[in-house]
Design a binder for these strands. Structure first.
Length: 288
DNA sequence: AATTGTGACAACCGCTATACT
DNA sequence: AAGTATAGCGGTTGTCACAAT
């Protein structure tokens, strides 16, 4: 299937976004809404490719984005979900209100992966098949004249690790999902629910997620059940990370802790007793 | 004070899936 | 049915700030 490049790269601005560009993009989207990324830059007066605009909006400019300060509970959930889902960043992000896949991916790569690497407990990461055409000379060239060999290429966290997870996770074929019944486009007020004010987008994130009136909280309730999570130990042996209770059975979960509940829902599905068909159907529903 | 190394994260890239014509 | 546009994903790279030497 031939596909034209998303933009002709000639004459387009690249690299970090300026405040002015941000403003232009925000104003345009406020006026016209999201979508039509290809034509957006031109209409908005931006010398950027549509893809770049989309990324900027999705990851940094959307009003419901939380920035910085990933809390202990969020970190915990990231670790656990990663152990279940692998590098499905968007899926993980979908379970962390206000967080983006890129942010979680970066957080994992910079903060968490080392931890697990050093303990040899890297979770069950589903890796993409190697790409046939990758990282061509063009790039290398670019790299070598930019900042020079400023630093060694960092080894990317999820690459080249032997999967040593203790649990085998059923990983259905990755398909595009809307991770929650919430469109990212619509304005479900995470920001108002979670953070109360735009100010909280700058750090000072309230990681207390209890009692959130989020659309899916009822789902979690309904999912209910107190799985015994027998035999499921995740990320065991990591002493230096500050959240014990990685073994779910040992942790006292506040009844109203939404994130914990959510995770329990996953855990139940990893119960070895669980019927594979049931697991499959859950997977289907998850991706659907 | 200058240089080098490292961590963090924003941004880019190539790819696939889906929707549309 | 086939081609194209668009959206979205995950891997990778570039750049900056700061620490160490």
């Amino acid at each position: 299937m031939g596909r034209a490049p998303c933009c002709s790269k000639v004459g387009l601005h690249r690299g970090p976004w300026t405040a002015r560009e941000d403003t232009l993009l925000i104003k345009y989207i406020e006026a016209h809404g999201e979508g039509h990324w290809r034509s957006l830059p031109k209409k908005a007066g931006l010398l950027r490719c549509g893809k770049s605009c989309r990324l900027r909006w999705m990851n940094y400019l959307r009003p419901d984005i939380k920035r910085g300060n990933i809390g202990a509970d969020e970190e915990d959930l990231i670790i656990r979900l990663h152990s279940l889902l692998g590098n499905r960043w968007s899926l993980i992000a979908g379970r962390l209100p206000g967080r983006t896949d890129n942010e979680i991916k970066n957080y994992w790569n910079t903060h968490l992966s080392k931890r697990f690497k050093s303990h040899g407990t890297e979770s069950n990461v589903k890796k993409r098949a190697p790409r046939p055409t990758d990282r061509d000379p063009k790039k290398r060239e670019k790299k070598s004249n930019g900042n020079g060999n400023k630093k060694q290429k960092k080894s990317s966290s999820s690459r080249g690790n032997e999967d040593t997870a203790e649990i085998k996770v059923h990983l259905p074929k990755a398909i595009r999902i809307t991770s929650l019944p919430i469109s990212r486009n619509n304005s479900f007020e995470y920001n108002s629910v979670l953070s109360g004010s735009p100010a909280s987008q700058q750090g000072g994130v309230d990681t207390e997620t209890e009692d959130l009136q989020v659309p899916w909280s009822s789902e979690i309730k309904d999912a209910g059940g107190e799985g015994d999570c027998s035999g499921v130990v995740i990320n065991a042996g990591d002493e230096d990370h500050d959240h014990e209770g990685v073994n779910e059975c040992e942790s006292q979960i506040p009844k109203d802790n939404m994130l914990e509940k959510l995770y329990k829902e996953y855990l139940q599905l990893l119960n070895p007793e669980e019927d594979q068909a049931q697991l499959d159907s859950f997977a289907e529903s998850l991706w659907a």
